[in-house]
Amino acid sequence: MKISIDDLHQAFESRVRLGIMSALAVNEYLDFTSLKEYLDVTDGNLATHLKKLEKEKFIRIEKSFIDRKPNTKYFITEKGKKKFNDHLAVLEQIIKSQK
């Protein structure tokens, strides 16, 4: 199979979204605050990127309340995991082919 740069999913173009997916890939789930701490971005910025990933069905959201405060958990979906791994494979190929 020939792999080209076109195969890179545009959802992973942003480094914040790539960061979100990397963190969720190695954790069962993360909440909004934890993601914000890891990525060092503003609330609004993170929310926009999360929304975009959710729209692609790469992540799934579970809302609950802790002490009456809303707490949102973010999980990676099967689809998200697959696309993320594909993305890694393409990155690897690109770097290999250019060596």
Binding site: R15, G19, S22, A23, A25, S34, L88, E92, I95
Partner: peptide
Amino acid sequence: DIAEIRSMMERS
């Protein structure tokens, strides 16, 4: 990108 992914996986 790859360096970032690795670092994020480790840090998180």
